[in-house]
Simulated scan of single mutants.
Amino acid sequence: MKNQEKVWYITGASKGLGLSLVKQLLAGGYKVAATSRNLTDLQEAVGDNSDSFLPLAVDLKNENSVKDSIAATVERFGHIDTVVNNAGYGLLGSLEELSDAESRENFEINVFGTLNVIRHAMPFLRAQKSGHIFNVSSIGGFSGDFPGFGIYCATKFAVVGLSESLAAEAKAFGIHVTVVLPGYFRTNFLTSGSLGVPQYPIEEYTAVRDSQNAHQQGINGNQPGDPEKAVAAIISVAAAEHPPVTLFLGKDAYGMADQKILSLKAEMDKWAHLATATDLD
Rank of each mutant, 00 (worst) to 15 (best):
N3Y: 02
Y9N: 09
I10E: 06
G12L: 00
G16N: 03
G18L: 01
L19D: 00
L19G: 00
S20W: 00
V22R: 00
Q24A: 05
G28L: 02
K31N: 13
K31G: 05
V32L: 00
T35A: 11
R37Q: 14
V46C: 00
V46I: 07
F53R: 07
L54D: 08
L54Y: 04
V58I: 02
S65Q: 02
V66H: 03
V66T: 06
D68E: 15
D68Q: 14
A72I: 04
T73I: 08
V74L: 12
R76L: 00
H79V: 06
D81S: 03
V83Q: 09
A87D: 04
A87Q: 01
G88M: 00
G90M: 08
L91Q: 10
G93R: 06
S94H: 03
L98D: 03
D100I: 14
A101K: 15
A101P: 00
A101E: 15
N106G: 10
N106S: 11
I109S: 07
N110G: 04
V111I: 14
G113H: 05
L115M: 14
L115G: 11
V117Y: 02
V117M: 12
I118R: 07
I118C: 14
H120C: 06
A121W: 05
P123M: 13
A127Q: 15
Q128C: 11
I133L: 13
I133W: 08
N135S: 05
V136T: 11
F142Q: 10
F146S: 15
P147Y: 11
P147R: 14
G148Q: 09
G148D: 10
F149G: 12
F149M: 15
I151L: 04
I151H: 12
I151S: 11
Y152Q: 02
A158P: 09
V159D: 12
G161P: 12
L162H: 13
L162M: 15
A168K: 15
A172N: 13
G174V: 05
T178C: 13
Y184S: 15
R186H: 11
R186Q: 14
N188G: 11
S194Y: 06
L195C: 08
V197P: 08
P198W: 04
Q199W: 02
I202V: 07
I202P: 06
E203T: 10
E204P: 05
T206R: 12
D210W: 08
N213L: 10
A214E: 10
Q217G: 03
I219E: 08
I219D: 09
P224T: 12
P224V: 05
P227C: 07
K229H: 11
V231K: 01
I234K: 07
I234D: 11
S236D: 15
A238S: 15
E241P: 01
P243T: 00
P243Q: 04
L247K: 11
L249D: 03
G250F: 02
G250Q: 04
M256Y: 02
A257D: 09
I261N: 12
I261G: 06
L264H: 12
E267K: 14
K270L: 07
A272I: 14
A275I: 01
T276P: 02
T278Q: 14
T278N: 09
D279S: 15
D279I: 05
L280V: 14
